[in-house]
Amino acid sequence: MSGLFVAIGDSFTEGVGDWDPRLPNGVRGWADRVAKQLSKADPGWRYANLAIRSRRLGSIMHEQIEPALAMEPTVVSFYAGGNDLLELRKDMGRLLQDYTRAVERLAESGARILLFTGFDVPLHPLLEPFKRRNWVFNEHVRALARQHPDSISLVDYWTWEAYYDRRMWDTDKLHMNRAGHRFMAIQILNLLGVRHQLEFEPFGPRERLGPVQLVGREAEWMRQWVLPMFGRRLRGITLGDALEPRWPEPIYPADGMKKLYRKRRKQERANSAMPAA
């Protein structure tokens, strides 16, 4: 049976880490992969993705939830709050209240809602307070899923041991890489009960690193990713400021997403070349 799948949220749902210049915003991601498999099961499935990297919960509630519901979706995925948890000062009580309001609004729609816990990403000891916030947040997500068993399906990302392998992660350690996004798509399709053609080949033995290599890699990660991230936050800018949603209007993935994007880019170039009236 066909329907409409709408994905809303931040970089996790936009697809950051699964880089592909042939698709909008240069990424693919698990949501595109799920949409493609839904369309293979039934070409009538449509798909929209409103997620933008670095978006906080308040922005997602303001910019994405109502436009998503206006499309009358069959399935809505909602991953939000991760960027809020990384703020230096954050009122957790307010965050959990806002998240609850967002989930209840989505649950009212009659769509099937996918909620996600956040993964226990291995972090430097200096960042441990942010992990404790994640634990509290995850328990709240689980509680909401239990309260709405008829409308909410929980994607309990926290419990999946496969993601303890660093080969599932991009170099920033905060976003899944292509393998991680592919594995996520498989898990979600299985949860939805959708027959699919995706497979995940297990990795070989892990590379063993000595203490000096581990310390050097950790220092480089802090220099390249962590410090710039907090620097942007202090300046009030994000990596998503200049970006638009990847698929703002429903598309038919069965028509080929790369083909659809090429057509869109061609139309945008033609429009920009037209003289102003």
Rank of each mutant, 00 (worst) to 15 (best):
D10S: 13
L243V: 10
M71W: 01
R265E: 14
P245I: 00
L191W: 00
L192A: 04
K263L: 15
G216D: 03
G204D: 04
V215E: 14
G93C: 09
Q197A: 14
G9P: 07
R28M: 01
P21I: 02
F119N: 01
R166V: 09
W221M: 07
G204N: 05
F183I: 06
F78S: 02
L260D: 13
Y163T: 07
L126S: 12
D172P: 07
G81Y: 02
A276N: 14
E14L: 12
Q37L: 06
L239F: 07
V34T: 03
L154Q: 05
E161H: 13
Y252A: 15
P248S: 00
A273M: 10
E14V: 11
F78D: 02
R89H: 15
E268I: 02
I113Q: 00
A273K: 11
K258E: 15
E249Y: 03
L69A: 04
P245Q: 00
L260G: 13
L38Q: 02
L85F: 01
H175T: 05
K263N: 15
G236W: 01
I188H: 05
E128I: 07
P202F: 00
R265A: 10
A107G: 08
Y261G: 12
M222H: 05
G81W: 00
V76F: 01
T117Q: 03
R56M: 13
L115G: 04
S39V: 09
A70C: 11
R146M: 10
D172Q: 04
K259E: 15
Q37W: 05
P73D: 02
L209A: 13
R178Y: 08
S77H: 01
A219N: 10
E218W: 10
R142V: 10
T159S: 12
R55P: 10
R206Q: 13
F137I: 04
M1P: 15
R167N: 05
G193P: 10
L191Y: 00
A242V: 08
A48L: 07
R33I: 06
G240Q: 08
D241W: 03
W247V: 09
L38F: 01
R56F: 09
M61Q: 11
N138C: 07
A102Y: 03
P250S: 05
D91V: 06
G193S: 09
A270C: 03
R246F: 01
D170T: 05
Y163E: 08
A51H: 06
A111C: 06
W30V: 00
